[in-house]
Amino acid sequence: MSITYLDAIREAQDRALKDDPRVFIYGQDVGAFGGAFKATKNLAAKYPGRVIDAPISEDAMVGAAIGAAIEGMRPIIEMQFADFSTVGFNQMVNHAATLYWRTGVPCPITIRLPSGGTSGGGPFHSQSLETIYAHFPGIVVMTPATVEDAYGMLLSAVAIDDPVIFCEHKYLYYHLKASSLPTESLPIGKARIARQGRDLTVVTYSAMVHECLAAAEVARDEGYEVEIVDLRTIKPLDTDTVVASVARTGRLLCVGEAWPWGGVSAEVIARVTAEAFDLLDAPPQRLNAKDTPVPYHPNLWAAHRPTAQSVAQSMLRLLRL
């Protein structure tokens, strides 16, 4: 049996609906159609009245989820693309994120953001927006990189009593496969060592984990062993695991598909520099997407975001410093 990252997301939602009558799904085309990516395929028929088509109203979708959460439900909101979540931004960052702190009433909502670039996606179907949500207090931001985490972390997201922004990567939907669904997973908030190494720590998350793993093989051919830390959640950020890895390697490269300014890579470097400056043998480096909108043509897109090739170049440059 082979299970894709997308299957895992669908299976996690199926299980959440099955196990907990408080769970429902609300989003555009999620009902009989099964969602733009089929992440809710067959769920509307299986759980009548609980997988609900929404009008094209991201603000009202999230607003309704907050109201439902106040009444004891655990809504899952599917944004059709992460890019469209900005229409619901106000309800997410100003309402959902502040509710518990202001009133003491928790806001257990999960908002799924099909994120990141695919070839031909263009400026408005490719964005990686984890950073802007992580900026706001009161939100948990998950960025699963594996089939196992897509499943386990989505179930955790629904179980958590706080708003969770679940950034699932569209590039991984069909490419990534596992033989079975996991029965257990690392705790939320804990990073994972995706590859062990002694010469360089690469901190990354989501689809970039796989580009970095491929790049590490290039570095191995050059005689270096690269350690790769998969953050899994970017908020909370597991600084301890990162610093422990830097203590082993003395070098740090952060890789993200999002834009560079004030992003996750900047945050990781700021923390390591502040907390573990004396562990560093070279200046920490980062590699992000270029500071332009995401381009449409595959040639431009491949050059816009980090790839195994550009990550390998960054690794080798830093290793030779």
Partner: peptide
């Protein structure tokens, strides 16, 4: 912003 919360 409150109206859709009432709806929910």
């Amino acid at each position: 912003a409150m109206i859709s919360v009432v709806n929910g």
